[in-house]
Design a protein around this nucleic acid. Structure first.
Lengths: 151, 151
DNA sequence: ACATTACTCTACAAAATATATAGAATTAAT
DNA sequence: ATTAATTCTATATATTTTGTAGAGTAATGT
């Protein structure tokens, strides 16, 4: 699940990616422009900074900016930093695997196997999507998936 | 995210799918066999029943059984009944769409567009997977996705 | 130097959600 | 009738999410 923290973080990243190269932005501006509680955003941006996604400068004239080009920041990377593993359940995670304590047979567990497929599908999308692509995304209905049943 | 409720429910469905046709099982048995708190499972199975996935019979000789063949029960259907929409965020749901209250432009929101892709990918997997397939799944490493980066 | 700015850190608090538990009510079989 | 089993209502506990408050730190400009 994408929490508000994750959502706010992504919006802040878009905000920063849309600045001119070299420019930075202060938290207050990002917060007001995106309807995000300032103090909450403080913590979020700090976390992104501690994960090497943003860099910050203190004091007057300071602010936050991307730590690397938007083309080198993966959306999956940002979401992991804020919301944790992409997998729907930890036993299906490749970056943070942990067996369920109630499961007597993780190897043959169908829940785990199916959720591993889901995790891989999510990762295929989010780890291959850069912040640059994300920011430039056009307002077009995303490609219709091959076989969708329930809409 | 798959909660314990969702996980327990899926395990119970597997349990019931593995019975001989026409057979049913009582909650206590499903609970002890799968390390699930009995009272919690009561509520879960009831919810699956109210969603037309299970049927129940009260009293001695009673119990739960599938309401339809395992080949006609979709995993996505079960997860929705227990954990809600598959989409990582409601504004990306097709079955339970709701705009974010803090979002001034849902149409052009990149978070929403990307999460819609994720939702579609999840749905492609879970709405096309039947309980029958799920139950018969072999203990084989799931197919390697085309381009996986972070493992 | 000094005031101002803005990030950083620690602690806490409120709200929402997830995870149960208890016990009585209902229905069916023997 | 008694027992078995689901169903209903209510409640309790734990965890996570979503914030808020306020002091601390570093940089800047004057």
């Amino acid at each position: 699940m994408l929490t508000k923290k994750g959502k706010y973080g992504l919006k802040a990243l878009v905000h920063l990616a849309e600045l001119n190269p070299g420019e930075s932005s202060i938290v207050t501006d990002i917060a007001t422009r995106n309807n995000i509680p300032k103090k909450f955003l403080d913590a979020i941006l700090l976390e992104l900074r501690n994960n090497g996604i943003l860099k910050s400068k203190k004091g007057a004239g300071g602010g936050y900016s991307l730590a690397k080009p938007a083309s080198e920041i993966r959306i999956g990377e940002a979401i992991r930093a804020l919301d944790g593993p992409l997998a729907p359940i930890l036993c299906a995670s490749r970056t943070a695997y942990q067996p369920c304590d109630d499961c007597n047979d993780p190897e043959g567990c169908q829940v785990r196997l199916s959720m591993t497929k889901v995790r891989d599908a999510i990762s295929d999308i989010l780890d291959n999507m850069t912040l640059e692509q994300f920011t430039r995304a056009e307002r077009v209905t995303s490609g219709v998936p091959s076989i969708t049943l329930l809409g």
